[in-house]
Structure formats: structure tokens, C-alpha cells
Design a protein around this nucleic acid. Structure first.
Lengths: 236, 236
DNA sequence: GCAAAAGTGTTCCGGATACACCCATGC
DNA sequence: GCATGGGTGTATCCGGAACACTTTTGC
């Protein structure tokens, strides 16, 4: 069998880039500038080039859409979506990636000026029977639902929550990430004891801050650990 | 943009089909009958047809290789692999799936007679510096490594271990699945108490068996639950 | 002083562990 | 009886949940 006999598909990557801002989990969406789904909101993404690794393609799209380098933030493969008819242009298989970043200004807003915006995940995924449910292009709603669940579950047993925090952060700021992503309050004293007791999660800087009011809080950086022992579990 | 302007790749599915037999975790491998990697062992798989869903393609390959229907066993997407050069025929992106099945005879051995065989995962993934490390075609060794880790971790918080068991099984047989997949012994009394206390995991049949010797053991079927509360955690 | 947020102490409880012990079969 | 594996009882330990309380700042 030679390769020219094989049926072939276009291969795309789509990115679900999350951040926490304004006390809500947000995802980065772009307004499509061309058909199909012209004008609709979509996950940023694009086609993979021949000779390009899937992850490299995701990193390239990330750079194009946000100006950020992939090695500056967390990125992982979510899964592939290839249902027939998911793209009216033909057979397109997309590989979805999840990326997490702190609440930074997006550098490209002054550069390539792609019309990318942060959208609240809660608002976006609220009941589809609402008066004006925001429609996403392609099957991006399903990808987003899967991506959100991936992020929520990964907070349980990995140090991923720190990817939402600035380089130096307090325990309370980390706690708010959990509360916002999971949509449930955490007991501050127990959370503090727990995360400061997980080896490798937090590296103390020695500095303190009062930016959140009240008694000065210790500032930490992300520690060397990638997994949580013990895990931080959702009660639900 | 029209679809004929897009660069295109062949899309394949590969299956890591696991079972537990002879006190070892085994994976189903086929001997390749054509180039590339003629004669080498590989995960069963094949190319996706246009208009075919990825999961359907995986189910079709499963049927072709084992004679089993996908709705008879557990199957889930593992991830996609698209590194340049991973297939010497050209640009091929593969979507890997993981499937789990009890230790059944493979129906096709009398039918299409594809040369599929069960291979011990431990032996296959043993140190690559061994005198005769079994080479797998393409990047199937990496896919297998990822698949094994997926299975191991999923046993912790899902009811997946029952997918390795026959339709009716004892608590001890379920325990042996955990011991074999994780490679660590479990305390029989505590394991028994734990799994019989997890709601929805086990449905008693009322029947007993002495097939494992000793006192008759209760026989169970898989219960309605998909997730374990509480989880069964590896100690390592 | 007062409010607010950080952080500590303490109690309670459920689940995990370790292991002694009993049960029901085949031989 | 004896061996074998199934299953129960029980004491202990550890981590999580709840919440009272102290600390340190801004105002």
C-alpha cells in the first residue's frame, strides 16, 4: 500500500485556553472572520502543517493567538474529535489541547490584533435553554465541556492550579482558584494547612503581601512537584 | 478557504487491547504482514475511512482483529500521535484507543485468522537494555506505555477493573486484577470489605463458586456504578 | 478600636491498615 | 483431620472537616 492510495483528512488543532479573572473561569475565544461559522465564536486553532508535530502546531497557534510561548504555560492534549460532518468544508480531524495561564494581558492585542476575547465559562455553558445561548462554531461546545471537566479533575491530583496564579502568589489566591474552578467554597484554615503540607507544591519566597487586605500573607512560587500527595478532593 | 487547498494527512486508529491472563497483564499484538515494519509486532489498527467516526473506526478495527463488538467491552480514546516521521509512508496521524476485555478466546482465530497474539506487558516493557528487547512498529511502544499508565490510574477511581473479569466473578478475582495490573499485593480482608462497601460496584448473584478452592465465594456481576467512592488508591 | 484576612489549635470522625480469627469447602 | 481460600472483628492510625481562636495588617 502506498501513501497516495490512502484517504486523507485535514488535521487541525484547537486550543481551550483558560484563565481565572474577575472571580470566574474564562476561556479564550475568537470571532471567526471567515466561513464556515463566520462571525461565530470559536476556540482558537488552525490547521497542522505537514512535517509539524501536533504539539508544535498547538504551540504555534498559541503564539499566534496570544503571543505567548508554549513553554511559558501549561499545555496538554485533551483528545481528538473527528465526527463526520463536524466541519462543513469536509473531513477535518481536530486535536484539542488545553492550556492554562495566569490572568495576564494578551500581548498580541497590540500586534497581530486577532479578535480574541475572554469569555466566562459559566455564562457560556449555562443552560442551553436560556434566551440567548451563545453558540460556538463546529463542535467546540463539546470540546469546551470536555476541557473544563479535564481541568476540574486535574486540580484534584496535580499541581495544575498554580498555573492559574501569577509567579508569586499567596495561599488564599491559590484557594480562590480552587473555589472558582470547582464552584465550591473551601475552608480557609484547612486549605492553608493542607497545601503548605504537601511537599514540593509551594516554595516560600520569604516576602509577604497585603494586597488582599488583612494580615500580611506569605508569598510563594510554584514548587517542583507535579502531583499532589495527598490529593485535594472535591467533596461533591 | 476550500478544503482542497488544505494539507492532508492519513488518519489511523490503533488499539491497545488489554486482558489479564496467566497472572499477567497482556496486550494484543499483531505481526505486520507488510511494509513498513514487515514482521514486527504492532498494535492492531488501520486507517479511518472518510465519513467514519473515529470511535467507529476503532470499533471496526476491534471487530476485524478480535471478532468482538465494541459495545461488549470497554473502550476509550487515549490520545493522538502525529510526530513527523512516525510513519515512513508519509504523514499519518493516529488516534490511539484503549480497550479492556476479560480473558476470552478470540473468535477470529478460526475466522479471518489475523495473526494476533497476547503478549505480556511486563515482558514487553522490561528494560530495553535486555538481550532481546521486543521492538514494536512505529511509535507503538510509546503508545503502549501511555496506555498502560492510563489503565493503571483508571483502576483507582473507576470501576474499570471489572472489565477484566468474566460476567460473574468473585471478590478475589477482582482483587487479583488489581494486584496484577498494579504489580502490588492487596490485603484480602480489607479489599473485600472495601469493594463490597462501594455502592453500585458489585451486584450479588446469590450464587457461589469454589473454582478458586477453599470456602465457596460469592459471585457478583458488575454493578451500575462507573466511579468509585471512595477510590481504591495505589500505595506506591 | 474595628474590620479583614492570615494562620494555628483542637476536636471529631470516616476510611485505611494490620492482623487475629472464624467459616465452608475439597481432599 | 488438614489445607485452602473466603470472609469478619477489631484495634490503631492518619487525614479531612468543622470551627474556635490568635495574629497582623489598614483604616
Amino acid at each position: 500500500m502506498t501513501s497516495r492510495e490512502l484517504p486523507k483528512a485535514a488535521v487541525a488543532v484547537d486550543l481551550a485556553i483558560f484563565t481565572v479573572r474577575d472571580e470566574r473561569l474564562h476561556v479564550l475565544l475568537v470571532e471567526r472572520g471567515k466561513e464556515p461559522f463566520l462571525g461565530a465564536l470559536a476556540l482558537p486553532g488552525g490547521f497542522v502543517e505537514p512535517g509539524e508535530d501536533l504539539r508544535s502546531a498547538a504551540a504555534r497557534e498559541l503564539k499566534e493567538e496570544t503571543g505567548l510561548d508554549a513553554d511559558e504555560l501549561y499545555i496538554e492534549q485533551l483528545g481528538s474529535y473527528g465526527a463526520p460532518g463536524r466541519d462543513p468544508r469536509g473531513w477535518v480531524v481536530t486535536v484539542a489541547y488545553v492550556a492554562l495561564m495566569p490572568n495576564l494581558p494578551l500581548p498580541t492585542t497590540g500586534g497581530d490584533a486577532i479578535d480574541a476575547r475572554w469569555v466566562s465559562v459559566d455564562a457560556l455553558l449555562a443552560d442551553p435553554s436560556s434566551p440567548t445561548p451563545t453558540e460556538l462554531a463546529f463542535d467546540h461546545r463539546q470540546i469546551l465541556v470536555d476541557a473544563v471537566e479535564r481541568v476540574r479533575s486535574k486540580l484534584e491530583y496535580t499541581t495544575l492550579a498554580t498555573a492559574f496564579c501569577p509567579r508569586e502568589f499567596t495561599v488564599a489566591e491559590l484557594r480562590r482558584v480552587y473555589e472558582i474552578v470547582w464552584g465550591q467554597p473551601m475552608d480557609p484554615p484547612n486549605f492553608h494547612r493542607k497545601v503548605t503540607g504537601i511537599p514540593g507544591l509551594l516554595t516560600p519566597t520569604g516576602a509577604t503581601t497585603t494586597r488582599d487586605g488583612g494580615r500580611p500573607a506569605q508569598l510563594y512560587r510554584q514548587g517542583p512537584a507535579n502531583h499532589l500527595h495527598p490529593a485535594i478532593l472535591r467533596t461533591s
